[in-house]
Structure formats: C-alpha cells, structure tokens
C-alpha cells in the first residue's frame, strides 16, 4: 500500500543551520521517536530498532536510514527501510528549504507499506501517520531550534 504525506514547517533558525542538522546522521539518530537501539555507521547510515505503534498494534522494526540527494542549503532526501512484526515499510522523504529566519522547510514523504500494517487500510494508516508525523516534526523543530 502506498501513502503520501506532505507539509511545511517554519523554523526560526538560519537555513544553513537547518540544512546542517537535517543532513547530520547523529541529529537524525537523536530525533528518531521510540528508538531502542541506534547505531550511526561510518558511511552515515543510521540503523535502529524502533517501535512503530498504530493504536494497539505495535511493530518492532529494524530500520535503516540514509541521507541522499544532498543539495547544500536547498534539498535533502531521507530514505528509510524497515521490517519487522510481519510488516515492511519503505519511506522516501524529500525536504526542500527556502527563506531564511524564518526558514521554510517543505517536506513530502512517500511510504510503501506491506504486510499486517498495510491490511489496516490507507484511511486508518494515513490518519495515524499524520498524527505521528506531527509529533516527529514537533520534536525535530524543538530540537533544531534548541540547538546551540
């Protein structure tokens, strides 16, 4: 099943700083929600065990994240792939930056989900994903704006 989510955030910090953090594997690793074990590999790949919860369904997933397609201060892509508890997911997220103080970050995430979670249907998954993505971005925004 395929899902698309998109949105935009406004950040009070300089665009250059937003880009630095967005493309920093350590920062991404710290921003992962419900992560149990996180390892940042030397090539920048982030490997983590995370708990993905959709209401009463919790999947323990092993995921790999990689930052690609970097265009300094303008664009970055975050590729995430994971599997576990009878489900798989592949998410491609694109981030586009413009403006400066405030920096506008437009994002778009395309997710491909299979297995048990996909069976719940896109309308339910979309509703939960929107809720979760909101939480993630609130966390990222707070972390970015709180960075020295």
């Amino acid at each position: 099943m395929q899902l698309r989510l998109e949105g935009a955030e406004e950040l009070s910090i300089p665009r250059e700083r937003v880009y630095q953090l967005l493309t920093n594997p350590d920062f991404i690793a710290r921003s992962l929600p419900d992560a149990q074990e996180v390892i940042v590999q030397s090539d920048g790949t982030v490997e983590a065990k995370i708990k993905v919860g959709i209401s009463f369904v919790t999947a323990n997933m092993q995921i790999k994240l990689k930052i690609t397609d970097k265009v300094p201060n303008q664009h970055a892509r975050l590729m995430a792939e994971g599997s576990g508890s009878g489900s798989t997911m592949k998410i491609t997220s694109d981030f586009d930056l413009d403006g400066d103080r405030p920096t506008r970050m437009k994002w778009k995430a395309d997710a491909e989900i299979t297995g048990l979670m996909a069976g719940m249907g896109s309308s339910i998954l979309k509703g939960f994903s929107e809720k979760k993505v909101r939480e993630i971005f609130d966390g990222i925004k707070k972390a970015m704006e709180g960075q020295p």
Binding site: S55, I124, G127, K131
Partner: peptide, 9 residues
C-alpha cells in the same frame, strides 16, 4: 477515522 478506530477496539 482515527478516533473511531481506536474507540472501537
């Protein structure tokens, strides 16, 4: 959609 799903369970 989401609340109806959760409350149903």
């Amino acid at each position: 959609v989401v609340s109806e799903f959760e409350k149903y369970i």
